[in-house]
Structure formats: C-alpha cells, structure tokens
C-alpha cells in the first residue's frame, strides 16, 4: 500500500476541488492565493486520499491486464459464471481484496481521520508509509458481525518531514446494509 511518489499537482487539486463542489479560489487561482495567509494554492483537507492515483497496485482501479470486478459483458468481470445463467446462490465472486485493511475493500469505509502538520500545495512530492492498526469486531442488529480494521498512513515530503497522518477504518459486514 506504500506510494513511492505522490506529486501534488495544481490540475489534480482543481479536479478534486470540483468533484467535491468546492469553488474556493484557494484551490485554483494562484494570484488570489498569493494574497492570502497561506500564500499559495493549497489542497482541500481530504485531498491526500487521492494518493491512490499514484499507487501502482491500487485494487480499486481497473488495470488493462487484469479482470475487473465491475460490469462489462456480465454484471461482474470476476464472477465465475454469468448471473443470467445462475440458478441459485452458487455464484462466486473471485475478488481477492478482502485481505486489504483500513479501507473500503470488500466492505465499507467506516472512519477517516487526518492530522495536518502542514497543508499540501502544488510542487510537493510526497511518499507514504502505511501500517496496520487495530482490528476489532462488533455485533450489529442491522448488519450481523462487523469486522473493523484500521490502517495508518504517513504522508512525508522530500525531506522526510511528516505532512499528514491519516487513519482509515474499514468495516466488512456480514449482511448488506441498505438503510
């Protein structure tokens, strides 16, 4: 899960800010940003999560040489059989992502925390180190047994200074939750 090189770029910040509906010029206008306290474009508070773009093995991005579990000819590219031919509950999904921790892998994203030592700006080149945190289980009426796992990611700059510490908690539920 380590990202060796996460270059923080102005165009990526712009696209990210647009996707969360944030039109604040601090994320897009260098002249405006130069006149503010921070002095330059910065990234929105949750931008660090998009380091996934720079993880070559990120399992939630389709890759040209691998089967993808989203739909194509069938409802899932990794299903053993086409669902339209299935007659019962014997359809298996070959996903191998349930070993991932602290993320939405094969489950849901339960919590996310960021501690900012400083804020990201275009030109930063970061690398990350991720380690597993705690694991625990909880019984839920709505979703059966909930299995939680925590992952801590440190975002460091080229001087190896800590910029952001992120903690993600993922949960795998026994039953589908649809509110």
């Amino acid at each position: 899960m380590a990202v060796e090189r996460f270059p923080v770029e102005a165009s990526h910040i712009l696209m990210f800010a647009r996707s969360i509906g944030d039109t604040n010029p601090i994320y897009s206008d260098p002249e405006y940003a130069a006149g503010t306290e921070v002095g330059s474009i910065i990234a929105p508070p949750t931008f660090a999560q998009s380091s996934a773009q720079f993880d070559p093995d990120y399992f939630l991005r389709p890759k040209p040489d691998k089967k993808w579990f989203g739909s194509g000819r069938t409802a899932s590219g990794t299903l053993v059989r086409d669902l339209s031919e299935a007659d019962g509950n014997d359809v298996k999904d070959e996903r191998e992502d349930d070993k991932q921790s602290g993320s939405a892998a094969g489950g849901l994203h339960a919590e996310q925390h960021f501690t900012y030592h400083r804020h990201l700006k275009p030109g930063d080149v970061l690398h990350t180190v991720t380690y597993d945190g705690e694991r625990w289980e909880k019984q839920s009426k709505r979703a059966g047994i909930l299995k939680f796992s925590e992952a801590v990611t440190e975002y460091r700059d080229e001087d190896d200074e800590l910029v952001i510490t992120a903690k993600g908690v993922g949960v795998v539920t026994e039953k589908v939750i649809d509110n």
Binding site: F16, F69, S71
Partner: peptide, 18 residues
C-alpha cells in the same frame, strides 16, 4: 478525481445484481 473506482459507486449493474 480521487482514483477510487469501486463499482459500488458508479456501476448500476454491478451494484444491484452482484
């Protein structure tokens, strides 16, 4: 933008049928 292409967020066929 984020790079998270989990089809549960974007793929109606996958999310309903699978």
């Amino acid at each position: 933008a984020s790079g998270d292409y989990n089809p549960v967020h974007t793929d109606e066929k996958f999310v309903t049928e699978v």
